[in-house]
Amino acid sequence: MAQLTDARSLGAAPDLSEHQRASLSGRIVQALRGKPGLTTGLLLLPGTLWMLLTVGTALVSIVVFSFWTSGFTGLRPEYTLANYQSLLRPGSSFWGITVWTLQVVAMLLIGVILLAYPVSYTLWRVIKSPYWKSALLLLFIVPFWTSYLTRTITWLPMFGREGVVNQVLMGLRITDEPVEVLLYSEFSMMVALWFLFIVFMVGPIYFSMQRIDEDIMSAAAVYGASPWKTFFLVVVPLTLPGLMAGSLFVVVLGLAEFFTERAIGGAQSPMLAGLIQRQIDVFQFAGASAIAVVLILITLALVGLMLRFFDIRRI
């Protein structure tokens, strides 16, 4: 054991052989020995540079362009506050759309948690066989790896006047004519979104449930806590990390969502990202940039708030 710590504190391995020293990789190893800072820097460099050039550039430029002027031939570098003024003036549709965006994300988050929590709980507590546990968990994760776009499109035939859901309802004689909210509406969009996003939540909650010590559960039972009490005072607090990880996904991707609204929601009630897309469609790049800045600020604020409650590096 002493030998082990010794070697680690020196940070050194036995010397390289002549042959290894001569090779290129041997020379690299030799050059980096004893320079941990340089090694760290070199390891981080390619990816960090990549991020700076893409997301870094995008963030800086979008802020700058939001103060430029949209012209017929593209953006003109004439600085103005007009983009923000027309956005933020009272009575602008922007306010309603911002509130609507936050409403959709809140409804999405609440719905997904309510749908996913019992699923994770069942996999954890009700299903006993390890084989079934992993098989079912896999079934809930697989859609995550298929195409989001395709999964959205699969909801197209479900809604509408002759949609599957309305046909089933009429077939069962629950209703005589197609239900209005099941046309391409805001409600249909929410249903599609709930089942599109549930795959982000089941896994994280289940994994944090798995980490709950069995002793804690039996201790709660021994001391006479009712199942409900155990659930709300023991299980829910201990699954907060999983809930937060899943929520982070739902909020971030929910705020960025614009396809489902267009395809399923009837393209009547855009969220902020959808508004940006509509501005791009009509070449209002400066206006689009101003909305983008607001959307980015909202996203960063919500993410910052959530990251206060848990450390994403500890999942």
Binding site: T54, T57, L255, A256, I276, F285, A292, L295
Partner: peptide, 12 residues
């Protein structure tokens, strides 16, 4: 960062 804003920024 919302995808469409990255797309817009880099496109411009």
């Amino acid at each position: 960062v919302p995808g469409i804003t990255v797309s817009l920024g880099l496109f411009l």
